[in-house]
Design a protein around this nucleic acid. Sequence first.
DNA 1: CAATGTGTTGAC
DNA 2: TCAACACATTGG
Length: 324
Amino acid sequence: MLASSEKMQRMGSGASVVLDPEHGPEAESRKLPSSQFKGVVPQPNGRWGAQIYEKHQRVWLGTFNDEAEAARAYDVAAQRFRGRDAVTNFRPLSESDSHNTAELLFINSHSKAEIVDMLRKHTYSEELQQSRRAYGAPPAAPRRPAGGAGGGAAREHLFDKTVTPSDVGKLNRLVIPKQHAEKYFPLNIDGVGSKGVLLNLEDLTGKTWRFRYSYWNSSQSYVLTKGWSRFVKEKSLKAGDVVSFQRSTGLDRQLFIGWKPRSTSPSVPEVQGFNLAGPIRVMRLFGVTIAKATEEEGNKRKEMELSPPQDPSPLWKKRFVGVF
DNA sequence: CAATGTGTTGAC
DNA sequence: TCAACACATTGG
């Protein structure tokens, strides 16, 4: 929604910078050349440092030979620290582009500390590259039919959901329980501003399913929307069936989706360790108790202005040492 | 010794 | 929040 306001941004002041009005020979090269990029500061040795501020404190993002490289580092950090509407040097990263989408998801899937660490070690690009193979993977990325045991990386089970009638109804959406959504599919951090991303998940047949994943402010819930109905249709999903989400533990963090039929047990359903407990009623999130009714249609409750699910960044008090 | 990045200040 | 600046600390 705010995309239009993403102008950009060279620092205004830079233009008129007076390059050292030398008084005379005495005026040594004392002044360092200031950068025209936001978050970039000159280093005595001619290199460039990148930094971002958070809560009155500077977070050092490392040093770089190339000024623009430092600026990009700042942009990445800004994206992670401040979300979609961060003011950046280059990026407005449109989420409609699957390529950028992948990067946004990558960024938001890592802690601030992790992102900063990558920037400082100059490994960000490399790690992003790997993540691309899992997420917004272009059709060019073929995958093994993940079937059997063998070979590749193992999968870790993320979570399951027993689908509700509305999950398989005409609404074309699957509600992902908040607790799981925020743990495994982190979206943009400032409550609003996240328009969702595309998730690629592979099923047992090796087919890749692409779902739009976003947060609905109106219902305070995370949902899979676009693409979901096709999955429901093809798998003939019915209320009570269980869908499960897994992820490769390998370097490529390919996501997988599976499902199994409803348990035959009439009372408390339970299948092979699957958590088939009923709908969530109450949960605590970051110390806030959240009441959540059963997923029903006319559940039009007023928005209750929860504190945004802000990343609890614990380790940004002073410096971050040994945090990684 | 050179490079890094922290301490600190003042402008915005 | 932010960059400028000085320099203590780090690392080879």
